[in-house]
Design a protein around this nucleic acid. Structure first.
Length: 547
RNA sequence: GGCCCGUUCGACUAGUGGUUAGGUCACCGCUCUUUCACAGCGGCGGCACGAGUUCGAAUCUCGUACGGGUCACCA
């Protein structure tokens, strides 16, 4: 699933219809990119706020933004909504961009990849918002409000007592223009609020849900410009989406309640609305909206767990969307090829780790090439402090381990004995070793007879089977002790595979070590960890033998 | 609580008036088998409910229930 850089980013720069508004001059009635471009180019954007670790919901949104834009040869813009100085996290921007790169959803325009609509950080666009807010102020579509935080708190309490859910009663509407002007001049702190219509209704034409109508009385006089000069989301999102020529606002369902404000703002500015696409919310297994507090929402965390980007993307692509032919596994390219908003369903899906793991397993076992997996597994081995002899050895191990793991991190856990000799024996393995001395000695003899070049699968397999036959033994009685000796556990690939991959030296070494352990007492599987009660005495004497 | 959105197996979904309601994950069983897996086969399990429209409704309408979102100088 490679990301091919779409050439439309350059088109944007040369297309006169989508040039940015000049920094000075009137704000009204300037055509947006969308209006000027008759081909109805699709422009989407992801506009996260830099508040912490990038969220899977952001990845989800980005996927659909990216796919919608790519399919139509449009553009995908990254814009940082850093207008809340209190929650600003300086590392977040880089993390967000890195996440998108990792997923293969790199934006065409971003703070790091300049385009015709920059800057792409809202904190660098303050003058633009101010101008727009003042425009509405001058036209009487907005007004100054001078209440302090304490006063607002009082107002809110009062409203609540009266059973109203609003946060502000619009009292500053009645200030005369002169008084408003005078108090502002005098240096009094104020915000600019939107003067929302008190009659009629506003209709949001949602692409997924059809028309959603809301009585205008329900629409509050929201703050547009804060007293610190920063815009609120509502002002910034509308102004930027317009100026950046965004044609489709694809965002989470949680924005539906405030969408009327945005529609009303488009109307106030006299701008053409974008298409509204309110995506279903990703939910946790308790059916609540995924939240940082209660759920693992960090993309980086899934990456650390050994989820591959392709699988995460594919999985997210099945949340609320499906391929026309019902395929469940598809690449980003295939999704782009077949994407349509019509196939999006509005019900909020559950983000289920089990199912994600299933997708991941499919990708690492069947879809991605073994060489790719080898590359990606290396960091996990490094973290676990495991060394591998050479590429071929790694590929051999991967080849027989892949069907036993679902994530890259699991490889480092479950295949550790291929990369280190200092592993312990788990409880079941120790039991098998105890009863397996005779056969282990027998196998040691037989396997020693083979030279290291004969440690191919067939020869090893024949040798072991011949031994079993010659002894008239039961297969498991021979195989299980050997498995325990070589891997420290009773779950492993086919034992002949293990022997041939490990090679003569390691195999004989491990059998020898196991035999010593049997006669001298078996070492604990995790020598450094506290022991279970009842086994303490036994384990004391085993100390130091596990090396 | 107000407003808004949603509702097909436990989960992800297909389905747009006529299907024995299909697939996938999970779960259970069987087969394979030296273990663990993989794979294959089979099973369990669903249209929230009630009216209406219609010859006929998962599909259209209305109501109810349930779930969710949202009510900041946060996004």
């Amino acid at each position: 699933m490679k990301t091919t850089q779409n050439p439309t980013a350059q088109n944007a720069a040369t297309n006169p219809a989508i040039n940015p508004v000049s920094p000075v001059g009137p704000v009204k009635n300037q055509p947006s990119a969308q209006e000027g471009d008759l081909t109805q180019q699709i422009v989407t954007r992801i506009a996260p706020s830099p508040t912490g670790d990038p969220h899977v919901g952001t990845a989800y949104q980005s996927l659909f933004d990216y796919v919608a834009a790519r399919q139509a040869g449009g553009r995908f813009i990254f814009r940082l909504e850093d207008t809340d100085q209190n929650r600003y996290n300086p590392e977040s921007e880089a993390k967000l961009l890195e996440m998108l790169d990792w997923l293969g959803l790199s934006p065409d325009e971003s703070p790091l990849k300049d385009g015709p609509h920059g800057p792409y950080r809202q904190s660098q666009r303050l003058d633009i918002y101010k101008r727009h807010a003042e425009e509405l102020l001058a036209e009487g579509q907005a007004y100054r409000a001078f209440e302090s935080a304490e006063e607002l708190e009082e107002i809110r309490k009062d409203l609540q007592r009266r059973g109203l859910s609003y946060g502000y009663d619009g009292r500053a509407r009645s200030l005369s223009a002169e008084e408003s002007e005078a108090r502002a001049k005098a240096g009094e702190n104020f915000v600019i609020r939107f003067k929302s219509p008190q009659k009629g209704e506003t209709i949001i034409q949602d692409v997924l849900r059809g028309p959603i109508s809301v009585p205008n009385q329900e629409v509050q006089d929201v703050v547009l410009l804060k007293s610190d000069g920063f815009p609120t989301y509502h002002l910034a999102v509308v102004v930027d989406d317009h100026l950046m020529g965004v044609s489709h606002v694809i965002r989470g369902e949680e924005w539906i309640p405030t969408a009327p404000i945005h529609v009303l703002l488009y109307q106030a500015f006299g701008w053409q609305e974008p298409k509204w696409v309110h995506m279903p919310l990703l939910r946790n297994t308790s059916l609540k909206k995924l939240s940082k507090r209660h759920d693992d929402t960090s993309v980086a965390s899934y990456r650390q767990q050994g989820i591959v980007a392709e699988a995460l993307l594919n999985y997210l692509g099945t949340m609320g969307w499906s391929m026309p032919d019902g395929r469940e596994f598809f690449s980003l390219e295939e999704m782009i090829k077949h994407f349509s908003f019509k196939r999006l369903s509005p019900g909020a899906p559950v983000f289920d780790l089990k199912r994600l793991r299933h997708y991941n397993a499919k990708y690492i076992r069947e879809i991605l090439p073994l060489e790719t997996i080898a590359e990606r597994v290396k960091p996990f081995l490094a973290v676990a402090g495991l060394q591998y002899k050479n590429e071929d050895y790694l590929l051999d191990v991967l080849d027989i381990m892949l069907e036993r793991i679902e994530t890259l991190a699991e490889f480092a856990e479950k295949a550790a004995y291929f990369f280190t000799d200092s592993f312990g024996y788990d409880e079941q393995a120790r039991k098998k070793l105890e009863g397996g001395q005779v056969h282990l000695e027998g196998l040691e003899r037989e396997l020693a007879l083979l030279d290291s070049y004969s440690y191919d699968y067939d020869t090893v397999n024949d040798t072991i089977r011949n031994y079993v036959k010659s002894q008239g033994a039961r297969m498991p009685d021979v195989m299980q002790p050997l498995r325990a000796a070589l891997t420290g556990s009773l779950s492993s690939p086919d034992i002949a595979e293990v022997v041939s991959v490990l090679g003569r030296k390691r195999v004989l070494q491990r059998i020898g070590r196991a035999l010593i352990a049997i006669t001298q007492g078996l070492p604990d599987d995790k020598p450094e960890k506290p022991q279970k009660e009842g086994e303490a005495a036994e384990k004391k004497q085993e100390k130091g033998k596990d090396t």
